[in-house]
Amino acid sequence: MRLGKKLWLIIFLKLFILFAVVKLLFFPNFLDEKFKTEKEKSAYIMDSLTTSK
């Protein structure tokens, strides 16, 4: 296989793995998943900052 084709193949394979597999299956946005509004997210963070772990 020529170098150019090999590099394009690696790029597309990598982008597919990163965005279609890794991001979708393993990296949901924690706050987006738990809360619908910005206000709810702010309240959650304020709770985190004022409650000792």
């Binding site: 990296f27 949901p28 946005n29 924690f30 706050l31 987006d32 963070i45």
Partner: peptide
């Protein structure tokens, strides 16, 4: 977004 959500916010 996943591991450091407090920080990101």
């Amino acid at each position: 977004g996943t591991n450091w959500s407090n920080y990101s916010w």
